[in-house]
Design a protein around this nucleic acid. Structure first.
Lengths: 243, 243
DNA sequence: AAAGTTACCAAACGATTGTTCACCAACTTA
DNA sequence: TAAGTTGGTGAACAATCGTTTGGTAACTTT
């Protein structure tokens, strides 16, 4: 048999068409090459996208990759074949939308970065706009929550630093965009008369770097990593930058 | 031919015994499976260790693994076969000293953690013992330098958090040992009358987490990551915890 | 000199992976 | 109805990997 589980009936093969979603074993090489396999839910047997809607598969692939990254811990489990298995398509189909495995993870990374930004902005907006400190704290909390809820994604996003930033110019990239959110937040604090011990830019970097360090360093430490303790750590951190 | 390049003449194979160190291609799957191979210097054709000195190979294997981790960027390049190639031995020989690939990376991780601790302690001791703040700063700088000089090792050490710390008990593990070094340093500051805004324990965690975050987050960003800017960032960080 | 131990290796096994190429089915257009 | 385009497969290729098994050469003890 080939690589696909959900076929849809190519080349005259008799198949149990229709029926409930199946399960596919997604394996990870570990230990003595006896395969430790984790089962990952597979979408119901695919029905072809309609004419002109071929681009939808791109989204489905990204979603599948995202799920795979959630369910497996390491980003080395993020393989073309694994993604195809979860998406219920043939590995070859991925190449219509991503030239490479690298392109796939790049696409996924970008996708997740906008998720993070959106989450942070939304969290900030949920706070009364008069509470300038609360807003920046909420954004930081949101980023921590994102990291803790999606450790795999977060590792993928932060493991490979910003793409080769040029020598003298101001660095760009998704990470910087995220930090800029915080810079704006701290700037609002300063504008509102809240005294800072450092510039808003420094404060933003310090706060984000601290939050990242805390989350990344103790990521899979059982206790000592409950959400509350992380959040209060971050708050302590934030309080340090204020005079 | 098998897997080995430096043999030493088993099973009657005529081999150019002696001669200069060779090179082995260490490949990494990347892109379109056309193999991008990086050359890694290989130790000269091995001569068997003498009787009773079989344990020496363990050290050589760790050294080879360490070098491999330096030269390749990802820790997924740390394969049994790759290590064997660099060490100039047969892959099977590794199993005399490490039961598993997992055992290998565990051994390497531990090995590198003691290197880090030693480096931090040495850096601290190089500072006049009256300069309590300078000592803790020096230790932090040493840890940053270690991380920047050996990004691969550092990632390996920090990527997999401390081994499942029990629910209520004080967490242990190599990372905690490292932090304890800083706790002692900050405690000395407090004892010497330097005012802290937080407890020595908090200060240590804050400082280390901050340093880790800064280094890990911008690890391969070309500029903005020169040693000086990292060190001054860390100093700024440290100054925040002092009153 | 014979037996035993140590240090190490070659070759194979069974699994994985990324990627390509030829192909088919369904739908739309001419 | 015939041709063309889109959406997607299947099967293979070439490489990798971890691990096991059965050795063998060199050295040491008896």
């Amino acid at each position: 048999m080939g690589d696909t589980f959900a076929s849809g009936g190519a080349s005259g093969l008799a198949r149990s068409k229709g029926g409930s979603p199946g399960r596919a074993a997604v394996g990870r090489l570990s230990g003595k090459n006896r395969y430790v396999s984790k089962e990952v839910q597979v979408s119901a047997p695919r029905t072809r996208n309609r004419w002109g809607e071929g681009e939808r598969l791109r989204g489905e692939i990204l979603a599948a990759a995202s799920r795979l990254l959630s369910e497996l811990d390491g980003e080395d489990g993020l393989t073309i074949r694994g993604v195809a298995r979860v998406a219920g398509i043939a590995p070859a189909s991925i190449y219509q939308h991503f030239t490479d495995r690298a392109a796939l993870v790049a696409g996924l990374t970008e996708h997740e970065f906008v998720r993070l930004r959106v989450a942070m902005e939304a969290a900030g907006d949920r706070v009364d706009s008069g509470d300038v400190v609360g807003r920046v704290r909420a954004m930081l909390h949101a980023s921590c929550r994102f990291a803790m809820d999606n450790p795999g994604h977060y590792r993928l996003m932060t493991a490979n630093g910003p793409p080769g930033t040029a020598p003298g110019v101001r660095p760009a990239g998704p990470l910087v965009d995220v930090i800029d959110l915080l810079v704006a937040g701290f700037a609002r604090c300063a504008a509102a008369g809240v005294a800072l011990r450092v510039s808003p830019e420094r404060a933003a970097v310090i706060a984000f770097v601290g939050a990242h360090g805390r989350v990344a360093l103790f990521q899979d430490s059982a206790k000592h990593n409950d959400a509350d303790s992380v959040m209060s750590f971050v708050d302590e951190f934030v309080s340090l930058v204020f005079a």
